[in-house]
């Protein structure tokens, strides 16, 4: 690997934001990647391509003219291969130099978990806007009525936001949900924990109808195509012995399809980090913490940075 000025050779067209560049990003679910055939995309505005090698292992590289979309790939002829990870069912790559590997999701090691990509959806928004929406409980009764919330039960009682080993946790988040999961048969008060281990990845842990102790884990892993367009991966790590993959995906995709027009109507597409830019309420504690955390990290990509920073 050639490194030029601390950045991978050829990636010079990317943003001047080391925080955004030096991250791993989930590009596509592994089992959806064609074998030996080029797929082109962009990451942070940098043209890149990927496929799976004939042994199934993922390959990623900075897009080269000799490999148009669909072209057969010989790993030995790639001019600028990118590092890859195959974790949690996705191909992850980077155009920078991440400090170590990915955050841990211990639940994925439990043998009875249903781990699947519930779907990958293109949305005209920025990564931080998408993550913030995922963390927001206040919108649930309004945008997902009858499923993840119900009017008039719109109150968000106070909850705690904590920083643990440079991650954000929001705990004891309670809300009444008519249909909390695909396996739900009735409404219930649901206890959520939100976790932000990565600027563009968030996880939520919520009680499941099928287990009194363990929690369902649902993740949003954002692939930033550029600073106003993303592909959002819906990561599921569920305890569910009832539903087919199609039924699980129907539930999660329905939720995302309700969020999409809301996100696409937020102006500007980039997330404002200035505390005065958008008026928060008490229910927005997690969102405020996330904005402050991005600001402290020095993230400038996909955000409107604080005016005094």
């Amino acid at each position: 690997m050639t490194i030029t000025n601390g950045r991978r050779s050829g990636a010079a067209t990317g943003p001047a934001d080391p925080v955004a560049i030096d991250q791993w990003y989930a590009i596509t679910a592994l089992d959806e990647i064609p074998i030996g055939r080029t797929v082109r995309t962009e990451l942070l505005g940098v043209p890149m391509s990927y496929c799976r090698d004939h042994d199934g292992s993922p390959l990623a590289w900075l897009t080269q003219d000799s490999l148009p979309a669909g072209a057969p790939v010989d790993a030995r002829t790639l001019h600028a291969p990118l590092p890859t990870l195959a974790d949690y069912g996705y191909l992850w790559t980077t155009v920078g130099e991440p400090d170590g590997g990915l955050f841990d999701i211990p639940e994925t090691a439990e043998p009875d978990r249903r781990i699947l990509n519930a779907g990958t959806f293109g949305i005209f928004t920025s990564g931080p806007r998408a993550v913030e929406n995922f963390l927001d409980m206040g919108h649930l009764p309004f945008v997902h009525p009858g499923v993840l919330g119900q009017q008039p039960f719109t109150e968000i009682v106070d909850y705690q936001v904590e920083y643990r080993s440079s991650e954000i946790y929001a705990v004891n988040c309670l809300i009444f949900q008519p249909k909390a999961a695909a396996a739900s048969t009735s409404g219930q008060m649901v206890n959520y924990t939100f976790r932000v281990p990565h600027p563009l990845c968030a996880l939520l842990y919520k009680s499941t109808p099928e287990d009194d102790v363990r929690l369902d884990v649902i993740g949003l892993f954002v692939h930033p195509i550029d600073d106003g367009r993303v592909r959002a991966h819906l990561f599921n790590c569920l305890l569910d012995t009832v539903n087919t993959d199609g039924q699980l995906r129907r539930f999660q995709q329905g939720v995302l399809a309700q969020d999409k027009p809301i996100l696409e109507n937020q102006v500007p597409r980039q997330l404002p980090l200035d505390p005065d830019a958008e008026a928060p309420t008490r229910a927005d504690k997690t969102s405020n913490a996330y904005r402050r955390w991005l600001s402290d990290l020095g993230m400038t990509y996909g955000v409107v940075a604080r005016s005094n920073s």
Binding site: T120, D245, G246
Partner: peptide, 10 residues
């Protein structure tokens, strides 16, 4: 009958 249309292509 929920068909896993995407991404399962059922």
């Amino acid at each position: 009958v929920d068909i896993d249309f995407y991404p399962g292509w059922e």
